[in-house]
Design a protein around this nucleic acid. Structure first.
Lengths: 198, 198
DNA sequence: CGCCGTTCTGAACGATGGTTCCAAAAAGGT
DNA sequence: ACCTTTTTGGAACCATCGTTCAGAACGGCG
């Protein structure tokens, strides 16, 4: 009972995440959050606690959803594993503008000073590494990747490239160039018969 | 004439850069800078102007030195171009701790909100892309990379991987894994005869 | 030795940060 | 229609932010 909430919690969290994603943790004030959510500061505090708590929640949920999509990507026909990796590399996360993904931004900003953030980031990246390793192994079984190659290293190569492409995107490198790099990455780990060079 | 300065400007700039590198622009206060430099706030202001001016100077100088090392890397025997790329990938920039490079951190933090920072970052990354493209072309001439391959894309692959490796390093992925990825990256763009698989 | 120009320090300022609190408003239950 | 419960908006709070300023400290030079 009592007065019902006027706002949709999910929408508020999305707006908050967008703001943190754009201006970072230290770069966004509670006033900013109040502005983009339409809620007053008092309401924000009573609903979500202080700024740090709210940020940790947003970040945890983002990591969880990242874990989830990583796991989802490994499901599918083995002979299309490479295509799924290619698609992942070609479509950067928060892509329309140059906002980039919250995991990358947060790791860059806070991993050095905050042990908890660093630990959560590491876990998320390890999930990513593991899922890419599995995709590479699928491609190996499908005969598209050298079976003698180090699948963990090749999966890591894809993850690292993905992360790097996002950095380049955020710096303003044009999407066409990024896609050429993404395709070259997949091509470079593909066995010769399938290579689509230059 | 007049009272001489008590501090070494170069050392102060290094301390300031380290601090910005660790805690970012929004995350470091002028008090922090005062603490790590040993200078009072007043001295900092009279010597270097306000916080933003100081940061832009630090960042510009970092980008310039990054450009310079990128250019320096292309000099050398053509048949060792791949080795130079491998060495670059294997030794992350600010590596001892997980501090990472100022260019990556700044791009992640500020490129979205600051046009000038974005432009400088883009220029730095394009220099990096160009130098890696040239190294790949050297390796092509030396017969170590498929001459039919897209050298710009392969160079971009190396740059993206480098950037991604640093992100993984900052998240806490162990160095051994990172080196395996780095080596796999170079191996994957190398013509078969030289491959050192697994 | 004492003037002079510069640098240094620390206090002070207004603005903004994050956080708390309270009175008014808005339903739901009785 | 009243009372309870919860949300709401905004004022108030103190700490910290970036910045400025005035006077003390200092070395070179006459």
């Amino acid at each position: 009972m009592g007065r019902p909430r006027k706002f949709d919690e999910h929408e508020v969290l999305i707006a908050v995440r967008r703001q943190f994603n754009e201006t970072g943790y230290h770069g966004t004030s509670v006033d900013d959050l109040s502005r983009v959510t339409g809620l007053s500061k008092g309401s924000l505090y009573s609903a979500f606690g202080d700024k740090e708590t709210l940020f940790r929640r947003i970040f945890d949920e983002y990591c969880a959803s990242s874990d989830q999509s990583a796991a989802a990507r490994v499901d599918g026909p083995e002979d299309q594993a490479l295509d799924r990796l290619r698609a992942w590399l070609t479509a950067p996360d928060g892509c329309p503008d140059r906002r980039g993904c919250l995991l990358a931004k947060t790791t860059a900003e806070l991993a050095w000073e905050d042990e908890g953030i660093a630990a959560r980031s590491l876990a998320a990246y390890e999930t990513l590494l593991e899922s890419c390793r599995m995709l590479v192994e699928q491609a190996q079984r499908a005969g598209q990747v050298d079976p003698a190659a180090d699948s963990a290293a090749l999966g890591g190569l894809v993850v690292a490239t993905h992360r790097g492409l996002e950095a380049l995107l955020k710096a303003g490198v044009d999407t066409k160039t990024l896609n050429r790099i993404a395709n070259a990455t997949i091509d470079s780990i593909t066995l010769e018969p399938t290579r689509t060079s230059a």
